[in-house]
Write a protein that binds this DNA or RNA. Structure first.
Lengths: 223, 223
DNA sequence: CGGTTTATTTTGATGACTCAAAATTTATAA
DNA sequence: TTATAAATTTTGAGTCATCAAAATAAACCG
């Protein structure tokens, strides 16, 4: 039984949802899953029970859902396809990084293993996609690094943007126009609780202040 | 209302089915449609009635179905995506011509206009796909040429294979291994009713005899 | 603790697509 | 022309994925 696009989307959403959960917990609440997929809560419950039947998830009524080993592998493979496709569309097809997410969202369900491996080869076995998200290997193994956000990183320290965890096209264009794409050097000059903002020194010592919400979506690393 | 993959497949099958019909007729029988799509005859009837509701086809009970102008345009655009994708997979991705049909069968339903136009551009606005099938333009216009098959072409005349109208992978590999791909020079030496076969002189004067069934799938043109 | 809010699950229905098998129509041929 | 064969349509049912709204459980708070 190969999984339907719907099942793949559920697994992917659970995978991504789990990874944002506070340490320890690891059970994704149904409400969160439902809103990630833009479906009614009742629908999520029904589908998750079916996924549990198939051994792809563990389901605890009223508590939430988590992937089993096989569910996680499947989810990682969907993510692998998604991210390789994104990178391919940018690198080979010359599409803009803000327009590839939606396209990949469709392609991830139909692209064959054969084609994906060909893309992987053409791209030189890359480790991250255009947003800095890690690309799982062909076996579904993912190497993930702990990165600080602009809210948690040290101040006045040279850093490099390495990941942008939001696929909204307008946000991505904003990031690009201010030279904050993965790879760009950056330094946090100040954070202010009251104004809910972060001041950044970027390329050519340009200053820019962004909201905490946006800042939390930029992950940085030591250069 | 954008058409579902299912609707696209019906329109494509009707389009292709119509084109093989004996002159004049132009009404595709339900049975043929059903078997082209590998579905039960009753299912075809039901769906076709729905398509007629949407104005995509004309349906005459017990006689068959034909595309309306809008249905034909939609079908041509599906075919455009299918054929551009096939050519892209061969030319850019380096896949074999016998393995791209199935992949394109999936991709044709999800690939965006943006991406298709990009492929078209990268390929230099090609007119035919790897099997010699014509690629409809972005408006759904198709330029089609009358070609003879190996059963109808003149004997002892230099010709060029220009189209192979069968997507079966084994057949395509056979064609390739005997240098009968589109572009190859060829000459029909003899036809024999009794043995139901055709003798061909190909590249380097190599002789090969194939069945009439197979011969009817090779279209040729004056060099 | 007890009442209220919030999250989750259940219930009943729907739409798109499919099948198998029965009923019907059309075509064929003796 | 009339019986038989072949093609087509109808009928009844099933699957998958979804929703809205009612019922229930859990969490929160004064």
């Amino acid at each position: 039984m190969l999984p339907s696009s719907t099942v793949e989307n559920y697994l992917k959403a659970i995978y991504l949802g789990e990874s944002v959960l506070p340490e320890g917990q690891r059970l994704l609440p149904m409400g969160q899953l439902a809103s990630a997929l833009s479906i009614a809560p009742g629908t999520a419950t029904t589908m998750v029970k079916a996924l549990a039947e198939s051994g792809l998830v563990e389901y605890e009524p009223y508590n939430g859902v988590r992937l089993t080993a096989s569910g996680e592998k499947l989810a990682a493979l969907v993510l692998r396809r998604h991210r390789l496709v994104e990178l391919f569309l940018v690198q080979v097809m010359g599409l803009r990084w803000d327009e590839v997410h939606d396209e990949a969202e469709q392609l991830e369900h139909v692209v064959s293993d054969r084609l994906i491996e060909r893309m992987d080869e053409m791209l030189g076995y890359p480790e991250v996609d255009p947003h800095g998200d890690p690309i799982p290997g062909p076996e579904g193994t993912i190497k993930h690094r702990e990165l600080a956000t602009l809210l948690t990183c040290p101040l006045h320290t040279p850093l490099v943007v390495t990941r942008v965890t939001d696929q909204d096209a307008a946000f991505l264009r904003f990031i690009e126009s201010h030279h904050l794409k993965p790879g760009e050097p950056i330094e946090v000059e100040a954070r202010d609780e009251v104004s809910d903002s972060v001041r950044i020194k970027g390329r050519d010592d340009q200053r820019i202040t962004i909201g905490a919400r946006a800042a939390s979506k930029l992950l940085v690393d030591q250069p």
